[in-house]
Amino acid sequence: MKQLPPEYYEILEELQTVDFVIVDLALYLDTHPEDQEAIQQYNSMIKQRKRIKKQYELQFGPLTSFGGSYSPFPFEWKEAPWPWQV
């Protein structure tokens, strides 16, 4: 497996942290659907996730396949390591 720069792990950890918060807020909102502050936090985290995902993909290639991410030329999805391999 190729050597990855420290930024790879930093951005990936930031993305995983935001994903955890999003899942946690979604679970909370399942039982508290009218909590406006939680909805605002959820939407803020979604916006932050999009920003981090874009940064990751610009530096390291597609994060997901099957329509979740654009690919530059040549097709990069085949390039390892994938996020779950590190």
Rank of each mutant, 00 (worst) to 15 (best):
H32W: 02
P62L: 04
P5F: 05
V23A: 15
T17I: 01
Q16V: 00
I46M: 10
E34P: 00
V21C: 03
W82S: 02
E76P: 09
S71G: 09
E57S: 04
L25D: 02
M1N: 04
P33Y: 13
H32G: 01
K47R: 01
Y56K: 09
P62F: 01
W84D: 06
M1S: 00
E7V: 07
Y9W: 08
K47I: 12
I39E: 06
Y28E: 07
F73D: 08
L27M: 14
F60K: 04
V18D: 01
V23L: 15
F60T: 11
Y9Q: 09
E14A: 12
R49K: 07
F60C: 04
D19L: 00
I46N: 00
M45C: 04
K54N: 05
Y56V: 07
V23H: 10
G68Y: 02
D24A: 14
L4M: 09
H32I: 06
L27S: 05
I11D: 07
W84K: 06
K2H: 01
D19E: 12
Q85K: 06
L29C: 11
M45D: 01
S71C: 15
D30T: 02
D19N: 02
F75A: 03
I11V: 12
V18A: 12
E76T: 06
Q48Y: 08
L63M: 11
I11L: 08
I39V: 12
Q3R: 07
I22C: 00
N43K: 14
V86N: 01
N43V: 10
Y9P: 08
A80D: 02
E57K: 10
P74N: 07
E76C: 04
K2L: 07
T31F: 15
A26D: 06
Q48T: 10
Q59K: 15
F60W: 03
M45W: 10
E79G: 00
R49Y: 12
L58A: 01
Q3C: 08
A80T: 11
P5R: 03
Q55A: 13
W77Q: 03
Q3K: 11
Q40F: 14
A38I: 03
A38Y: 09
Q48L: 03
E37V: 13
F20W: 04
E34H: 14
E57W: 08
L4I: 10
K54I: 01
M45I: 05
N43C: 12
L4H: 06
M45Q: 13
K54S: 09
S44R: 12
Y9N: 08
G68T: 08
I11P: 01
Y28K: 12
L12C: 02
I22L: 08
Q48R: 15
G68M: 05
G67Q: 11
S65M: 03
W77D: 03
T31K: 15
K50P: 00
E57L: 05
I22D: 09
